[in-house]
Simulated assay, not measured.
Amino acid sequence: MELTSKRRAYLRKRAHDMDPLVRIGKDGITDNLIQSILDAIDSRELIKVKILQNCEDEKQEIMDKLCSCREFQVVGIIGKTILIFKENKEKPVISLELKGI
């Protein structure tokens, strides 16, 4: 599903009250971190990823690494929080709402 500007705005609005499920620490982006993102996003479709203060990578580097992963889409970054979306084909909730936009 292509994320237009209206869909991105809707996803940012939906994620406003959510708590970050995945945190990026001093190790930065690793295969284990990507796997934990995929595990968390399977049922939820939309998650927040928080970049902690002890992370040595710049947030733009982290964004670029996450954008290179083709299994999910990066909605955007707000401060040190990254929003990630992946459409759930089996039990869509947010995806159905997005298709109406």
Rank of each mutant, 00 (worst) to 15 (best):
I51H: 02
D19E: 15
K86C: 06
D31I: 11
K59P: 00
E71Q: 14
R23M: 11
K13Y: 13
I94F: 10
T81Y: 11
V49K: 03
D57G: 02
I62T: 03
G79L: 00
Q73P: 02
D42Y: 05
L52H: 08
A40T: 14
M18S: 09
L21A: 10
E97T: 11
I47R: 01
K50H: 12
G100A: 14
D31P: 08
S43Q: 11
Q35Y: 09
S95G: 11
V49W: 05
K86H: 07
E97P: 08
C69Q: 10
H16S: 15
S68D: 13
C69I: 14
Q73D: 14
G25H: 10
I94V: 12
N32C: 06
V74M: 11
L83R: 04
Q53C: 07
C69V: 15
I24E: 06
G76T: 06
V93S: 12
G100R: 15
I47M: 01
C69H: 08
S36E: 15
D39M: 08
S43G: 11
M63K: 10
S43Y: 05
V74E: 07
C67E: 03
N54Y: 11
M18R: 04
I47L: 03
I78S: 06
I24S: 03
C55R: 03
I41H: 03
L33H: 07
N88P: 04
N32M: 09
R23L: 10
E2D: 07
I62H: 00
F85Y: 15
K99G: 01
D64W: 07
D64N: 14
E56L: 08
P92K: 13
V22G: 05
R12D: 02
R8Q: 12
L83P: 04
E71G: 01
P20E: 01
I94S: 10
I94R: 10
I84L: 12
K6G: 01
R8A: 04
E45K: 14
K99Y: 04
A9I: 12
R14D: 01
I29F: 11
E2Q: 09
R7A: 04
E97K: 14
I94N: 11
I94E: 04
E56A: 05
C67G: 01
Q53V: 09
H16C: 13
I34F: 12
C67Y: 02
E2H: 04
K6Y: 13
K48G: 06
A40I: 00
L11K: 11
A40L: 04
E90S: 03
S43N: 12
K86N: 06
L46N: 10
L3K: 08
I78M: 07
M63H: 00
I78G: 00
I41M: 02
L46D: 04
L38R: 13
L98F: 06
Q53T: 11
L52V: 06
L83K: 05
D39V: 03
N88I: 01
C69P: 00
E97G: 07
